[in-house]
């Protein structure tokens, strides 16, 4: 059983909702990433999403674009990201880590080499934003063979046939994109999300995480009423981007705690 499956399994049993937090690897500084990940777990993160910086993050809004640019300016490569995961794993053997990024850095390394190295480093899942199911049948199979969950996005515009395709190919969980737009957009319609989730549930037994545009404890709690997990990314990065390096981890903890409490209430 994968770490992701195990975590969702125990949460379902306890009727708890998972909190997934995203940071871009190497932002604001490569040396801060591992301490930041530990800090997020201490404050209540259940699953960590680690963004792999890319020069052309087409599906991301300005906040994650800036994070990617800051990390690239410090020379962070996919190899470095895997090294950060390996380092994190020395102290934390249970919290699932999902890498989220774009296809090109993976293809530049070579899919087989990447998946083998990711498995060895302790990665549990991968989201390749620009690998829709029709372009990555073999990549998904390769990931599964190495015990890594290929996680796919679904969107408000996804048809029933696409939901079934993602349910067939994906594992770990399904990432439901809560709005029509890019990451961090400001027009989340919670009711529309809640209305769509039952249709996805009907097609899959995979847990559903919801992200893109969740900005506070209140919207997180309302979404968690129907979803298995909520994902917070841009809002966390925004919170950290103006903070001096020495205070980043503490600020992250302070940001996460009330959301955790709201989810557990």
């Amino acid at each position: 059983m994968s770490r992701i499956e195990a975590r969702f399994g125990s949460f379902r049993a306890q009727r708890r909702k998972a909190l997934i937090l995203f940071v871009t690897a190497g932002d604001p500084d490569p040396a801060l990433t591992v301490p930041l990940l530990h800090g997020l777990v201490e404050a209540g993160a259940d699953i960590l999403e680690l963004g792999v910086p890319f020069s052309d993050p087409m599906a991301d809004g300005p906040v994650i674009q800036r994070a990617s640019e800051r990390a690239l300016a410090k020379g962070v490569s996919l190899r470095d990201v895997l090294e950060m995961v390996r380092s994190f794993r020395q102290r934390d053997g249970t919290t699932p880590i999902v890498l989220m990024g774009y296809a090109n850095p993976i293809e530049a390394m070579g899919a087989e080499r990447f998946i083998a190295a990711a498995a060895a480093a302790g990665v549990d899942g991968v989201i390749v934003v620009d690998y829709p199911p029709e372009e990555c049948e073999s990549f998904a199979a390769l990931a599964k063979r190495h015990g890594i969950d290929p996680i796919f996005l679904l969107a408000p515009t996804s048809t029933g046939a696409r939901v079934e395709e993602v349910a067939r190919l994906g594992s770990g969980f399904i990432y439901y994109v809560s709005l029509k737009g890019v990451t961090g957009a400001g027009h989340l319609d919670v009711d529309a999300v809640l209305a769509r989730l039952p249709q996805i549930r009907a097609a899959t037994s995979l847990p559903i995480g919801v992200g893109f545009g969740i900005r506070d404890a209140d919207s997180a709690r309302r979404i968690a009423g129907q979803a298995d997990a909520v994902v917070i990314a841009s809002r966390l990065i925004e919170e950290l981007e103006s903070v001096p390096a020495a205070q980043v981890v503490e600020r992250a903890r302070a940001f996460v705690r009330p959301i955790r409490e709201a989810l557990d209430r």
Binding site: M58, A59, A103, D130, L153, A155, T157, S158, T159, R162
Partner: peptide
């Protein structure tokens, strides 16, 4: 091919 995020798949279809 069609290497885009799920958010664009419907529009392309």
């Amino acid at each position: 091919g069609v290497f885009v995020a799920e958010t664009l798949m419907h529009a392309l279809a």
